[in-house]
């Protein structure tokens, strides 16, 4: 019963986001600030994760290809498709759910328990729209670029690891990368990223906005934001794959 209530409350909360902003200029400034925080602020963790992910995929693929009839360029194909279709849009977004999601939930949750949201409401500001809309818009706009960078770094990491360890020579890896490349896979990954960006920011904001109590509850809201975001990312990963690829 509580989950049904929460789903209803979430959608009412979302409906309040799309009301006319009080000052468009201030919302725009907030969007750019959020894009900076979410985008540039996440580049480090995304780059490190992507590089190692690409390296591991390449080495594991090489380890598993024991049949001499399978060309080594297959390693490049496997690495490319795994990174583009799944690792960059899904795994990296799950990592970002931990970083961005917990940050949003704790920021808004703290604002709730310290009456900062009440202060906004009393001023006549639509607090949910003012606090959440810029985050959702910023995430939807900037995270596809972050995922594109992740794809590039992941593939690069795989190339370097394959070449340095001798698991897959450069020529084979590069041949594999170009072999039967489907451009729609990148489009598909970006569509998923937009869906996941919306999930991460809206779920985390919802959890933070409806926090009641004190510091302990802010921590719990932050944890719930990450857990629910990850579950929903996996669920919508399946739905998107079913709808767009099958």
């Amino acid at each position: 019963m509580r989950y049904i209530f929460s789903i209803g409350q979430y959608w009412i909360f979302m409906a309040r986001l799309v009301q006319k902003p009080e000052r468009f200029r201030i919302y725009m400034r907030q969007i750019f600030l959020e894009m900076d925080a979410m985008g540039f602020g996440s580049l480090g963790i995304v780059a490190v994760n992507s590089a190692f992910m690409g390296a591991v995929i390449t080495i594991q693929s090489a380890y598993n290809i024991v049949n001499p009839l399978v060309p080594l360029s297959a390693i490049g194909i496997v690495a490319r498709d795994s990174i583009i279709l799944e690792f960059s849009p899904t795994v990296i977004m799950m990592v970002l759910a931990g970083k961005i999601g917990s940050s949003i939930a704790s920021e808004i949750g703290t604002m709730r328990v310290t009456e900062q949201i009440d202060a906004l409401e009393i001023m006549g500001i639509n607090s949910s729209s003012f606090l959440v809309l810029p985050k959702v818009v910023a995430a939807v706009l900037i995270l596809p670029f972050i995922v594109l960078i992740s794809m590039f770094v992941g593939i690069l990491g795989g190339w370097l690891a394959g070449d340095m360890t001798g698991a897959c020579p450069s020529a084979d890896y590069l041949k594999g990368l170009q072999d039967s490349f489907v451009t729609f896979n990148v489009t598909f990954a970006l569509i998923k990223t937009v869906v996941f960006a919306f999930i991460i920011t809206s779920v985390a904001s919802y959890q933070g906005y409806f926090t009641r109590g004190g510091a302990l509850e802010v921590g719990k809201a932050s944890t719930r934001a990450v857990v629910f975001s990850n579950i929903l990312i996996l669920l919508f990963d399946y739905i998107c794959t079913q709808l767009l690829l099958v």
Binding site: T110, M111, T114, E115, Q116, D118, A119, I122, M123
Partner: peptide, 12 residues
């Protein structure tokens, strides 16, 4: 309306 909250409620 202006309001002064118990904890100040200043934006951190």
């Amino acid at each position: 309306i202006g309001m002064l909250f118990q904890g100040g409620a200043l934006f951190d």
